[in-house]
């Protein structure tokens, strides 16, 4: 968990730094503007990253101690 949680910084970099770098319409990817595809990609990656963090976090284990 210790280092896994730092993955949570990636969505912030992807959106706040990535969007300014990739702010263009063309090329269209899968028919969509590039900047839009980039944001959608980060939404999916955020879900993946948070799932990994959830699984690795001992607070979510189903033991009697961790149950609140």
């Amino acid at each position: 968990m210790a280092f896994v949680k730092y993955l949570a910084a990636l969505p912030f970099l992807g959106i706040l730094v990535g969007v300014p770098l990739l702010n263009q319409v063309e090329p269209l990817i899968l028919g969509l503007p590039l900047v839009l595809v980039w944001i959608v990609l980060w939404i999916v990656l955020t879900a993946v990253i948070m799932t990994i963090i959830y699984i690795c976090d001992p607070a979510n284990r189903d033991t009697p101690e961790s149950r609140q």
Partner: peptide, 13 residues
């Protein structure tokens, strides 16, 4: 308008 798509995901993190 894409800002609307972007902020939620950071808020969930």
């Amino acid at each position: 308008a894409f800002y609307i798509l972007s902020y939620g995901c950071l808020a969930y993190v």
